[in-house]
Design a protein around this nucleic acid. Structure first.
Lengths: 203, 203
DNA sequence: GTCTATACGCGGATAGAC
DNA sequence: GTCTATCCGCGTATAGAC
């Protein structure tokens, strides 16, 4: 064993060898989806994904070009928000917070962590910015009254991202221990006020 | 040159050799502060810091235990907010946003990026949570009227973090292009409402 | 075209001689 | 305390077998 650089994957474990052929790409994509979700972008290695898929690590790069490109191909940057924004504008703030806090959707948390970890790659960053513009700003800004509609939507997205950041990445103890209903009410209303500031005639 | 694994640092560049002796730790700390600020946590390598300090890379680990420990030792996790929170409670929201957006304080941006990149290390995360509790929650929560004072401060911190995240890490184009004065007013007031919600007798 | 084997250059971290 | 020589893992590249 002359070299110290590659010792880990002597051969792709014959017990899980692919039947060879065209399904290789799919196997890699499936393994990537699983491992990116389980371990995040940094925690999932190209070699690990290859091992899980039963292929050679070099094939992963050969097929997808880079780890970043594989990530962009497999992980859905849209977090499934579209439907949440469709409802009435008056309580979209609370609905957004409730959507992300719903314990029945643990996938959301996984995807957010993976996306945040991958955000230092330029193309992932750009995809996320594109997603913000398309998913949040484009449908929401035209429905808002008042000045700076686009800016206010962007600020609402920032506010939402901050909550997810402290909850899912930072794991702030106060927010983690807090009653979800209180967070949904307080923070949801705060987001709401950015989008539809209460007029003076409001009770 | 038999091995492919280490080719980069043949020797620590005699032109910048330390005078040897006791100042080594200080030299490493200075170099670490500089490079962590310039390139962030991931971008600054132990070998790079050692080169900048004129010492052997192994010495860095020998002295500080790990890159994470060196980071915690050198980078000030407090971002100098203490004084901002001391003033009147009525407009602390705007003051906070203005403090972080002030272009005269580019160091803030650098430190935030470095901290965020290092946040996937457990000890750095814990230090940031400790910092949030000590710097924000402890001094601010007792001054707030109403229920859930601690939670509301934590939510305000989350809201602030979201803005920094989209501005400094994500580099959202809308927020980047926005008028800072508008952001300070709109977002600062939104944070303010979490801390001191306007009563019904408010004009 | 697909896949294997081997390699490169980087990263953080360690053992043990001086 | 300091430094040499490694170690192992990472993402990636490439030559060449099938």
């Amino acid at each position: 064993m002359p070299y110290g650089c590659r010792v880990t994957h002597p051969s792709p474990d014959p017990s899980r060898l692919r039947p060879a052929g065209l399904a290789t790409r799919t196997a890699i994509e499936d393994a990537a989806r699983t491992l990116f979700a389980e371990r995040g972008f940094d925690g999932a290695s190209v070699r690990g994904i290859a091992g899980e898929a039963g292929v050679d690590p070099a094939l992963v790069i050969r097929h997808f070009g880079s780890k970043e490109a594989l990530f962009l191909r497999t992980v859905d940057t849209s977090l499934g928000i579209g439907s949440v924004l469709d409802g009435p504008l008056e309580d979209v703030g609370r609905r957004l917070v409730a959507y992300f806090l719903d314990p029945a959707r643990p996938v959301i948390r996984q995807r957010y962590v993976a996306l945040a970890q991958a955000a230092h790659h330029d193309q992932v960053r750009e995809e996320m910015n594109r997603h913000t513009a398309e998913t949040y700003v484009a449908p929401l800004a035209p429905r808002l009254a008042g000045a700076d509609a686009e800016l206010r939507v962007a600020l609402a997205v920032a506010q939402l991202a901050g909550l997810l950041d402290l909850l899912f990445l930072q794991r702030d103890p106060i927010l983690t221990a807090a009653d979800p209903a209180a967070v949904i009410a307080t923070y949801g209303d705060a987001i709401q006020r950015l989008l539809t500031p209460p007029g003076p005639e409001d009770a």
